[in-house]
Design a protein around this nucleic acid. Sequence first.
DNA 1: AACTCGTTGACAACCGATTGCCAAATCATG
DNA 2: CATGATTTGGCAATCGGTTGTCAACGAGTT
Lengths: 345, 345
Amino acid sequence: MSLPLGASTDRPATIHDVAALSGVAASTVSRALSTPERVNIRTRVKIEAAAAQLHYIPNSQAKALSSGRTGAVAVLVADITNPFYFDIIRGTQLQLKAAGYTQLLVDTEESEDVEAGALEQLRRTADGVILTASRLSDEDLLAASAKLPIVTINREVDGIPSVILDTPTATNQALDHLISLGHTKIAYIAGPDASMSSHRRWQALEPAALERNVEVRKLGPFAPRTHSGAAAADAAVHSGATAAIVFNDLIAIGMLQRLRERGVAVPADMSIVGCDDIFGADFCSPPLTTVTAPVEQAGRTAVTMLLGQISPQFSATARRQAVLPTFLTIRASTGPAPLPPAQRV
Amino acid sequence: MSLPLGASTDRPATIHDVAALSGVAASTVSRALSTPERVNIRTRVKIEAAAAQLHYIPNSQAKALSSGRTGAVAVLVADITNPFYFDIIRGTQLQLKAAGYTQLLVDTEESEDVEAGALEQLRRTADGVILTASRLSDEDLLAASAKLPIVTINREVDGIPSVILDTPTATNQALDHLISLGHTKIAYIAGPDASMSSHRRWQALEPAALERNVEVRKLGPFAPRTHSGAAAADAAVHSGATAAIVFNDLIAIGMLQRLRERGVAVPADMSIVGCDDIFGADFCSPPLTTVTAPVEQAGRTAVTMLLGQISPQFSATARRQAVLPTFLTIRASTGPAPLPPAQRV
DNA sequence: AACTCGTTGACAACCGATTGCCAAATCATG
DNA sequence: CATGATTTGGCAATCGGTTGTCAACGAGTT
């Protein structure tokens, strides 16, 4: 395809140009394009022809200014370079484009301040916001949602629609998996203190461990980066655990690297379970046993919910809560517990 | 930090609210905020206080409409989920934020049509565009650049500022590396036909191979995805090559997986060199020998160039061309060429 | 042909800023 | 103290659309 040249060496056509060319008023052009059924079919055809001829593209700024709707939805992520968000971004992008919306991607740099500031800005710029792993307090979130339609992902606040990836259930599955392999001393490598997901998993894990009569110790917090994996690995080894359930794959992969450096064999000496099943989890060494979540679907679902809030035309199918199931994917980073030193000789 | 609540339960403050509160005209408020030196210091203080009290945030749509500047820069990438772009995105995001600009991220889905359409749209929405790995023809690119400031990354067109990652030099280095290991039959796994980078590398590789008297065969094209790696691996094996220089790490990692499935040992039976040094290249198995490029810096440089075009205040430092050096990172996926079958027994 | 009813299209106000132009105010100077 | 030079501040037009209001028009009915 070729860019439409020729007619448009000058400035882009406005609605007035289209009106002049088709011999009607500007308002008629506006109506013909936004509510075609309220305009005579002949006039409409004439206007559409003129618009096509001039390559007319409505100015979205002007549209937003006069109508109050921007046609944009913001997606806030904590860290653009965290592969976990790729699929969210792709999912939202896909669904938004299909509905004729534009995606505004904002990186909050894992900072509450940046997140709050962006939210305030966005109030004018976007018709709604999708918040992933928000760092804000419940009160701030509620206050923000009073001003602007919001859907959260992996964060539950009463009164705010949300999409939750049910990782706690799967981490408990992971616990059973490890127990069945003979592990009795297990570490939980926690994520940032501000992370709801990390808390929820621990809250599920702790009672489950008690019930099954195994020891699970919480270590951390650790930043969700591969290089935090070194500290996490050292902590896990030092704790005497033979297996670790890790906040996310980024840290888990970092641990894999560190353990290899230290000569700790995975899974012979220590088993590792990650979470998220990000890009790379299947080809790291050894391939990571991890909790697989339908992340892209979470993005799509969040968009659907948000659009339901924003525009009545989508609201028929609108739910306000969704819990998406996850499952344990077993690869090669988990194996039988090593024999205790006493029994070795 | 807490969201600024209280005063703003109602709609956001406008410039008129600020003007009313401080007892001046709206235009004075506008001037006080954009050209402070042209306003009496006392008035200015009064206005600033009022603005702060009302949590005034200028409406960017209105600003764009009246001033013609949107304060946004679009970054077009072929595929958001390709890790190569992560660092570009991070680099541009960083630099744009520092300059007070907003980043508009657009996924062109590797499609020329989508790219052209987006460019046309963006003409009103963004002050400039950064194009990564454009699929457009030179003519279309030039036409587009006449309407809107453009900087390209990895694409050279006369008259358009560009940032080039000098991968051809490094792939030739890779060639020498392989030759020094004894390889004489080498495959070049090509990227999409529309990719300039792939062409440039081949154009450097072919004469170099001739000169060094080794055989380099071009195979492909292959889509820049991990799953294309399977076909690429099979093609490489079938060609009889003992080493492959691969268009990018995504394909290279896919090849690694496929080769393992087929029982072809890397690097014992075949050596692999990737390109880009993406996330995962260091922890795949075996870790990938690859061409490391300063991708994030490319993003930053592109922004600097673009801003130089857009606003005179940055133009002092503006260059119009930049070629960024890359280097070969040797990991474990390359090794000595296997002995020819005849010599084995 | 007169009348009603329902459509269709034009006018104008408005969204929230920027900016050119001019008048008022300030200040320095003779 | 009057005058001119220089600031400083306000009015109003403008950006490109949307949308409420209302007049004009055409079709259908009697």
